[in-house]
Design a protein around this nucleic acid. Structure first.
Lengths: 351, 351
DNA sequence: TTGAAAGCGCTACCAG
DNA sequence: CTGGTAGCGCTTTCAA
């Protein structure tokens, strides 16, 4: 005899107490409107009295799928990811889908493990808002025929859509803005240089600096994604001897870390050095000085991902052409100028 | 015929392809070491070839419970809650439990709905790291016999443990510290005044001010939990005409919002007014000025919650005395002095 | 309007 | 070492 950790009643118990069949109980609980009102009331009372909670596993087993969406994010602690998750969740909830989230910590094994788990849960769809990737993953996902939307990584395929932000364009706006302000020694603070989307931003930075102001000097440095990582990166940068007049960060959270280190060293922002972020998270407006950054519409991204997921499901259900839902959406970042940037200083800054 | 959104294979398909019974496939997949090696390999190859993913619902249905813990938090966006969640998750993962999180937005209907859902999933235990409560909830939970740990709210019962932070003590440390600095006009910035733990902090603030410096004036104001809420509360406070020399915030995130509004108005911190937070989240160290706050050990709380959950499960399994695991743990906050507090100014401050 | 019963995919027991 | 098979709790025909 197996130990049941919690002794929750089942349909049968309710049925017996209400003196009906399990079929009828099921009908009442699912609002199938054919049940006589007196019966329905009796069932409801019995369920209540027994503190009955339907076993969702049994339900999903019958249906072959659950009305649940799986969400994967690289770093939930970064408000950018969190905001996308929130938008996606509320869109899903509005259509009565549940969601389960998993944090991958930018680790592709973790991504794969979480996706496996969610496939095991037979989720109705998967949203991977991650920067990491795994070579076998696409094969596995394509084979599963499950609706999937990637943000930032992956390539479209019959059941896989992709939503991207045009980082190139965003980065270009920032670099051009800074170049116009007279900056000619710029540094880029990134993280996880091996990940596709991140290294793309780095490369784009280098390219754009090259094109916009060919005589500028550029330097790149990286830390972990987060406040502490930004601070570390700033330390490393300053230790390298390079004296930038502008520091461009891969995202806002790292920029706030950079700000902190600069303040510690008495380097004024933006008088001595300009700092920019990326994403335009809420904190960008609340830190001191407020960050100049590139706005990415997380709300829109979340909604878009949800819609693509729905489109894919319907496509599959209606047996449309296999690639009916396979799409690639491109989103445009917008420059937001605040207090952390200014005209480049004339003389080099003390370290 | 029902539409299967994704066509994932089942045990039977694998069994046929490997020319064995489903029982054997099951044994291989579960590492029951009685299977001949050649057979095992054949099964593994078949599973791989078919892109097989076991249906976890079926598995849980058989077991009657899933190796999953449910976590409920009031506001995942607040790093305090997030950190507790992370600690809990990593403790759980280390013992190979999965976790599912749900955000309640401080709304008790949402709390109840999420708990219902998780009970439906037959989670192995529930951790409610929330400030809101529902009168019927305790009854429902007690009746379920499921291991539950509450943080901050609820009362212990056979299957329910509670972990609390001694806010009274923490608040006392802050107020005494400020009183010693000569502050005699203090304000408290809270949120959701109707919630137990929050109103407790408010009341404690009032009491402590009363006792520590009876001639001090005190005022209370509230906003939403978050950066924006803190800023709003500060606006409201200043609009009220009250001119505090110290503003005590219910948590760090709101304190950062307060800092922002003060800076906008040219009110210097800590020269003109001192500001304190609570929780000691990472950001407290990275904002400007860095926050004086009360440290709450989230890591410890997360681990403690997990251990209580495990204790409760074992208690139930071993049929120990019903209340063997029912415990109340009290945790002590520590004052952390940084840059946002100083001696009270002599003259009132301009609004 | 209701009941009986056939599974959903998997595990675990009992035989062999 | 392996196979047959009885459920786990629920939904959904098919009959009544």
């Amino acid at each position: 005899m197996r130990a049941k950790p919690a002794d929750l009643k089942n349909l049968n118990a309710v049925a017996r107490r209400a003196r009906v069949s399990t079929a009828t109980v099921s009908r009442v609980l699912n609002n199938i409107n054919v049940v006589k009102n007196s019966t329905r009331l009796r069932v409801l009372k019995a369920a209540e009295a027994l503190n009955y909670h339907p076993n969702l596993h049994a339900r999903s087993l019958v249906h072959g799928t659950s009305r649940t969406l799986g969400i994967l994010v690289s770093n939930l602690e970064n408000p950018f990811f969190f905001d996308v998750y929130r938008a996606l969740e509320s869109a899903a909830r509005a259509r009565s889908y549940e969601v389960v989230v998993a944090n991958t910590d930018y680790r592709s094994e973790q991504l794969v493990a979480s996706i496996r788990l969610m496939m095991g849960w037979r989720v109705a769809g998967l949203a991977a808002i991650v920067s990491e990737m795994d070579s076998q993953l696409m094969r596995m996902l394509t084979g599963s025929r499950m609706p999937v939307v990637f943000y930032d990584v992956g390539v479209p395929s019959p059941n896989i859509s992709v939503v991207r932000v045009d980082y190139r364009k965003g980065m270009k706006k920032i670099v051009e803005y800074l170049a116009a302000l007279g900056h000619s020694r710029m540094a880029f603070v990134g993280h996880h240089s091996s990940l596709g989307p991140i290294s793309e931003r780095r490369r784009t930075f280098l390219d754009t600096v090259q094109r916009c102001s060919p005589r500028s000097r550029a330097q790149v440095v990286a830390g972990a994604d987060g406040l502490e990582g930004g601070r570390q990166a700033a330390r490393e940068l300053l230790a390298s001897g390079f004296r930038p007049t502008a520091i461009l960060c891969v995202n806002d959270i790292m920029a706030v870390g950079v700000l902190r280190e600069l303040r510690d060293r008495g380097i004024r922002v933006p008088e001595d050095v300009s700092v920019t972020g990326f994403d335009n998270i809420r904190l960008a407006e609340f830190c001191s000085p407020a960050l100049t950054t590139a706005h990415i519409p997380r709300e829109l991204i979340g909604r878009t991902i949800f819609e693509q997921l729905m489109a894919a499901s319907h496509g599959a259900a209606k047996r449309q052409a296999p690639d009916a839902a396979a799409r690639e959406t491109l989103i445009d970042p917008e420059l937001v100028v605040r207090e952390s940037t200014a005209v480049a200083p004339k003389a080099p800054v003390a370290g």
